[in-house]
Amino acid sequence: MDNPSKIMEGGIEYSLGKFDGKSVLYDFPKILVYLNAKGKLLFGENFKIYKEDRDILLKLCSYFIKDKVNCDKFEIDIKKGLLLSGPVGCGKTSLMKLLRHLVPLRRPYEMIPSRNVTFSFNHLGYKTIEDYGNTKFYCFDDLGVEPPGRFYGKDCNVMGEVLLSRHELFLQTKQKIKTHATTNLNAEELEDRYGNRVRSRMRELFNLIAFDENAGDKRK
């Protein structure tokens, strides 16, 4: 039987903790070693796990490995998706691309730039909203800064509509269909962008995990 506490990357075996035959007892420092190595493989040698991001990473890892004790402590609901917010360049997208590798046996989500959803709508119309309201798992990247939707002269708040569809799906499937997102906007800005109705659905869809607003731009 495979040992789910170990992951092979680039010919090296990484241990994430101990496997007792039923479940994995994860070890956070070991997880960080693995994520650092996997990040270098995915994003290049300059990738590193920053000390100041450890608190955020502990929350994100607790969610992905379904560590109930930590999730309760951080008030994270495992049934909901994640909305990772923070300033431009703080590493939100990289972390969401990276963390899906932490639990390889679990169903992965697709990273979709929110602007691509709007571009698709402007080209294909309402079929786009139907397409993203399906049973796949998505992480919508850069939510809130996508261009306006317009199809045959009609304006549409495309990502707002997609989130409403995803929320309906979330309720219908008893929280089995997850939606994640990253955003540079804060709660008020999201409400301005999508309106009160979408914002209240977002509270039901997402756990909000936020970087410090003074987090530096790691791309500089």
Results as ranks from 00 to 15, higher is better:
Y138D: 04
V162Q: 02
L205W: 10
F121H: 10
T135D: 14
D212M: 06
R203Q: 13
T173C: 09
K136A: 13
E146Y: 11
V103W: 02
L171P: 00
T135I: 10
L205C: 07
V158N: 01
N122H: 11
D131V: 03
E213A: 03
T179P: 04
V145L: 09
L163E: 11
K174L: 09
Y194S: 02
T182M: 07
R100M: 09
A215N: 09
I177P: 00
R166A: 04
M202N: 07
P148H: 05
L163T: 12
G144E: 06
G216D: 03
V117L: 06
T173A: 13
D141T: 03
K174P: 00
A181D: 09
G216A: 11
L102T: 02
D142H: 00
I112A: 05
N196F: 07
V162G: 01
T182V: 08
L105S: 14
I129C: 08
G153M: 10
A210S: 15
P113D: 04
R100E: 02
A210D: 08
N184W: 02
N214A: 05
L102N: 01
K127C: 02
D141L: 02
H123S: 14
P104Y: 08
D155G: 11
S120W: 00
R201D: 11
L164V: 12
E188T: 08
F206M: 09
E161G: 01
L169N: 10
C156D: 01
R193N: 12
F137T: 09
H123Y: 08
N116V: 12
E188S: 13
F137S: 05
L143V: 15
T135G: 04
N184D: 11
M111V: 15
R100S: 06
S165H: 14
A187E: 14
Q175V: 00
P148C: 00
H123R: 15
F140T: 05
C139K: 04
N186D: 15
E191M: 14
L105E: 15
K127L: 11
T128V: 12
R197Q: 11
L105C: 00
G160Y: 07
M111S: 14
R203K: 14
C139P: 06
L208C: 03
S200L: 04
N196Q: 14
T182S: 12
R100V: 14
T173N: 12
L190R: 06
R100H: 01
A181R: 04
G160S: 08
L102P: 02
N214R: 14
G149M: 03
H123P: 00
A215T: 14
K127D: 15
E146I: 05
E130N: 03
E130Y: 10
L205P: 10
R197W: 01
H167R: 05
S114K: 02
R100I: 13
R106N: 12
M111L: 15
G160K: 06
T179I: 10
L143G: 11
M159Y: 05
G195N: 07
G160H: 03
V198P: 03
R106E: 15
